[in-house]
Write a protein that binds this DNA or RNA. Structure first.
Length: 454
RNA sequence: GUGAUUGUAGCUCAGUCGGUUAGAGCGCCAGAUUGUGGCUCUGGAGGCCGCCGGUUCGAAUCCGGUCUUUCACCCCA
């Protein structure tokens, strides 16, 4: 007896029904990317482990899927480490490759390797799965697709603006109501500087990132536990309780940052981006959010996050500017900025809110009922003719019972069925039946084409 | 990774105190209906009760482990 098949934790299968919906999402996103001049690339599912390690922080390193070396991998392993069961150190000896954790780091590697073939600024998009050994939850998978757009080799804030326009267009096209949250790492660094804890930037950002979720008091407790002085925490309070419009917040921040060069720079950048965005026809709300931190530690400037307004789920898109990701791979002074659309979360939102336009789920427009070998062969010819006109047509392959064929068309949501039996063959006509209204009439092939293409 | 939680037919779920042959609705297949689907009626198929082990005369039910699901933390798309 065969064992019951299963798939690994946190992964999922997609049925044809789900794939048409997913492809609609991918196509919508791709179409916007292309309209802004981004070109596609792909990179391997696996990367060398040293390309990936150390780019996502300690937590990220733990979440990397590592691939066991081929062959007798234990042969080369150190006996001492083996005996001690020291997994951490042993890993380096038995695994040299890992599954990619995101698309940004492989992209940086790609840019460095291909720097002489590329012209900068280089704009690319990339839609591929990534893997994280996270514990799965709703909206959190171990394998999921990211749709990344990045510009590299340009410092201009126009790029940040363009990414906001892209986010706006993508979600408007898909019909998802969202808010774009914007912040800047320089502002966060400025805050750390001002309160006299410049070296604790990560601890501070991780803590204030939770402000909305756990409240001010608990954030302060956490900051204190992380070892911040009471004085520093006290200095932080007015910043955390900033409120009002984006420009109002920026004005207050500018004042606070009077003595911080870095913070001032961050405020200026935010102000410029927001000012330009306001002059364009961006409909999505862009909200300055000082508590937005983002864990990936390669960000250095603007950081973005997009939240769905009508569904409780983690952020569905996120990104930011990284000034020196390529530096690690030997290409200095190349700044990039990009964002990543989380296709699987977008898929979950679209499903929950049922945002698909009706035509997305229609595949076949017209199905020919098969009355027998002779009639079927005749239908095949008409079907080819219709396909040349761009119609999506199928001929039922077996001369099964009428009821079975009709039921098939029904299930597949096919709007029209064509009946061509001996009578129609002799008359040179096709009986076209509307499956919704039940109406049917005999017509010539040209009439059918006209019905569908008008 | 830490702490909880879930698993019974293709799907959603009942299943009493441990007790004979594990049920329902939906779906599926067939017939009523030979070239006309959806509605109705009739009949049928489909289950290692997640998996492994233990307790017991006897386990879907109790116990342990494991896998999976969902949730919180952590982190994130």
């Amino acid at each position: 007896m065969a064992q019951k098949p299963s798939i690994p934790k946190g992964t999922r299968d997609f049925t044809p029904d789900e794939m048409v919906r997913r492809n609609y999402i991918f196509d919508s996103i791709k179409e916007v990317f292309q309209r802004y001049g981004y070109m596609p690339i792909e990179t391997p599912a696996m990367e060398n482990l040293d390309t990936l390690l150390g780019k996502y922080g300690d937590e990220g390193d733990k979440l990397l899927f590592k691939i066991l070396n081929s062959g007798d991998f234990l042969n080369k392993a150190d006996d001492g480490l083996l005996a001690q069961k020291d997994s951490n150190r042993l890993t380096g000896q038995i695994s040299e490759k890992g599954l990619r954790y995101d698309l940004t780091v492989p992209f940086a590697r790609f840019v460095v390797q291909h720097q002489n073939e590329l012209s900068f600024p280089f704009k690319r998009y990339q839609i591929q799965p990534v893997w994280r050994a996270d514990r799965p939850q709703k909206g959190r998978y171990r394998e999921f697709f990211q749709c990344d757009v990045d510009v590299i080799g340009s410092d201009s804030l126009f790029n940040e603006v363009e990414l906001i326009q892209i986010v706006d267009e993508v979600f408007r096209n898909l019909g998802i109501r969202v808010v774009i949250k914007l912040n800047n790492r320089k502002v966060l660094a400025g805050i750390a500087e001002i309160i006299g804890e410049a070296s604790r930037l990560t601890d501070i950002t991780v803590a204030i990132d939770k402000l909305e979720k756990i409240g001010l008091e608990k954030v302060n407790v956490e900051l204190s536990e992380k070892g911040l002085t009471d004085d520093a925490i006290a200095k932080l309070q007015p910043i955390l309780s900033l409120s009002g419009s984006n420009s109002g917040k920026l004005d207050q921040l500018a004042h606070i940052f009077a003595s911080s060069e870095l913070g001032t720079k961050g405020v200026e950048e935010l102000r410029e981006v927001l000012t330009i965005v306001e002059s364009l026809d961006v409909e999505t709300g862009v909200e300055l959010d000082l508590t937005l931190a983002r864990g990936l530690n390669y960000y250095t400037g603007a950081i973005f996050e997009v939240k769905a307004l009508d569904m409780q789920i983690g952020s569905i898109t996120g990104g930011g500017r990284y000034d020196d990701l390529t530096g690690i791979f030997g290409l200095k002074n190349v700044s990039g900025v990009g964002i990543s659309f989380g296709a699987d979360r977008i898929f979950d939102v679209m499903n929950q809110l049922e945002l698909y336009p009706p035509e997305v789920t229609t595949t076949t427009q017209l199905m020919f009922v098969n009355f027998g070998p002779k009639e079927g062969a005749h239908c095949l010819k008409i079907a080819s003719q219709l396909r040349k006109e761009g119609l999506k047509v199928e001929v039922y392959p077996d001369s099964a019972k009428m009821k079975k064929q009709m039921t098939y068309a029904n299930k597949k949501n096919i709007a029209f069925v064509a009946l061509v039996g001996e009578e129609e063959m002799n008359a040179g006509t096709v009986t076209l039946k509307n499956m919704e209204s039940g109406e049917q009439s005999a017509m010539k092939v040209e009439d059918i084409i006209r019905t569908f293409t008008e």
